[in-house]
Nucleic acid binder design. Structure first.
Ligand SMILES: NC(=O)c1ccc[n+]([C@@H]2O[C@H](COP(=O)([O-])OP(=O)(O)OC[C@H]3O[C@@H](n4cnc5c(N)ncnc54)[C@H](O)[C@@H]3O)[C@@H](O)[C@H]2O)c1
Ligand SMILES: NC(=O)c1ccc[n+]([C@@H]2O[C@H](COP(=O)([O-])OP(=O)(O)OC[C@H]3O[C@@H](n4cnc5c(N)ncnc54)[C@H](O)[C@@H]3O)[C@@H](O)[C@H]2O)c1
Lengths: 214, 214
DNA sequence: AAGAAGTCGTGATTTCCTTCACAATTTATC
DNA sequence: GATAAATTGTGAAGGAAATCACGACTTCTT
């Protein structure tokens, strides 16, 4: 597969398409056009067709796309056939919320274990996920390649180094710290305070016209 | 102010710069170069200089930027001088986590009230934020222009319509639903499951070389 | 005071992504 | 079975953002 050429922007939209196709399938719909899809996921229909085209000709002219076929295709492409195991570090406010959430429902992802420094939390479990002591992280992690970071920013660098040392491949970082990792490790930042402030900034500086007369 | 020309990508980085400058200031640093900044926030130094240049010549050649001056400038630009009030809808796992977080620390943003449909939650308060019944939303909202949505996806459309009707300007949407709003309202989506799955996809399909020999 | 080193601001270039627009093809209709 | 309608896949154009690269200026060193 030469999927190396798929634009990053496209790759980020795939899970969205997948989830919506899943919904359609459950509703019993068998075909869908890029136009319908566009209205549902709020992505331009040309962009959707372009995105799909990177994977070959998945549709039929004059017809659209077969839901079941497309779904099957994306399931393979997104590796939805095998479960991806994830570890969560830091069982605080955010971490606890994630542990209660079932990522298996739409995505084939499972938080298998969590770690914390707080002795009161260690030994218990939340949402069926066992919580271990952070000192035992290396012992427990085993083959897990993806970690979610929900610890205080001050702890981010230290824990990141340990994760890297242990051979982690990807980190979803919710701390405000911009962590440093070797080039072969992928970090996605989700900075909630920044997102909120950026929204506020846009509202104040990019006033949108209330009525668009065409 | 002709800040309408500031690229969106730049606008999204401003809160990040702001936070880091704040840190520097607390550390007592008085000057900083785009190179130093670059290493800290992991943004190319040319990009940083370009970003700053949209606001005029804020630095000095051969010297760098004066931390205090830059900080003051951004504080004004980001409207950090006045508090932005926000409402949170849906006091579940995620919503509760946000209520415990203090957005006043780095950002001048305050969740002033929360709404839920669950009678058991209504009347209490979390992190000092009062929780009202969703039926009373319009009565309580008053002048609030920004809402955080942390309700089940199935409720998203209905609540969004009510928010729009009431005159909301911006929504930070954590539900997987792609909500529809009139053009003059700004919606930012944060889709945690999609983020996680996109990370997994990148790991499998964009293998990065473990060692870069130069 | 002169030369070296550091750093900004920005024109030019490159990269990446989105959107337009239409030929090709299929499906639907009469 | 012919005509109309729908819809894809994609070349080409357009746009936004990142990066290069360097002249101009400041500060540091001796
Ligand atoms: N909660 C929010 O709404 C929110 C918003 C924006 C950013 N954040 C960021 O997300 C991160 C987590 O936020 P939170 O509100 O869940 O914080 P929290 O303080 O509630 O949770 C942090 C958890 O990490 C644990 N911990 C501390 N040091 C540790 C270590 N060395 N190893 C393992 N565990 C350790 C603590 O025991 C605690 O359970 C923070 O960096 C915060 O800045 C949170
Ligand atoms: N928790 C996570 O980690 C996570 C991950 C990915 C996506 N999400 C999404 O975020 C959203 C919230 O997730 P959660 O885990 O906090 O859910 P949750 O079920 O814990 O919380 C939802 C809250 O909304 C309230 N609610 C229900 N209907 C309402 C209405 N009409 N008006 C006001 N309040 C109402 C409920 O009483 C509940 O308190 C969901 O859409 C979920 O899909 C959550």
């Amino acid at each position: 597969m030469d999927q190396n050429k798929i634009p990053q922007a496209t790759a980020k939209r795939l899970p969205l398409y997948y989830r919506f196709l899943n919904n359609l399938n459950h509703q019993g719909k068998t075909r869908v056009s890029s136009k319908e899809l566009s209205e549902a996921v709020k992505v331009d229909s040309a962009t959707i067709r372009r995105d799909f085209s990177y994977f070959g000709a998945l549709g039929k002219k004059g017809y659209g796309y077969n839901v079941e076929y497309l779904l099957g295709f994306f399931r393979k492409t997104l590796d939805q056939d095998e479960v991806t195991d994830v570890a969560l570090i830091g069982v605080g406010n955010l971490g606890t919320a994630f542990l209660h959430y079932n990522f298996m429902k739409n995505n084939n992802i499972k938080i298998q274990m969590a770690f914390d420094a707080d002795e009161n939390k260690v030994g218990s479990s939340i949402g069926g996920v066992p919580i271990y002591h952070i000192n035992d992280m290396e012992k427990k992690l085993n083959g897990i390649k993806v970690a979610i970071l929900t610890i205080p920013a001050s702890e981010a660098d230290g824990i990141t180094d340990r994760l890297v040392e242990h051979g982690i491949k990807g980190i979803l970082n919710f701390t405000p710290a911009r962590i440093s990792v070797p080039e072969h490790i992928r970090v996605h930042h989700i900075d909630l305070a920044v997102e909120l402030q950026a929204l506020v900034y846009f509202l104040k500086h990019y006033p949108l016209v209330p009525e668009v007369i065409e």
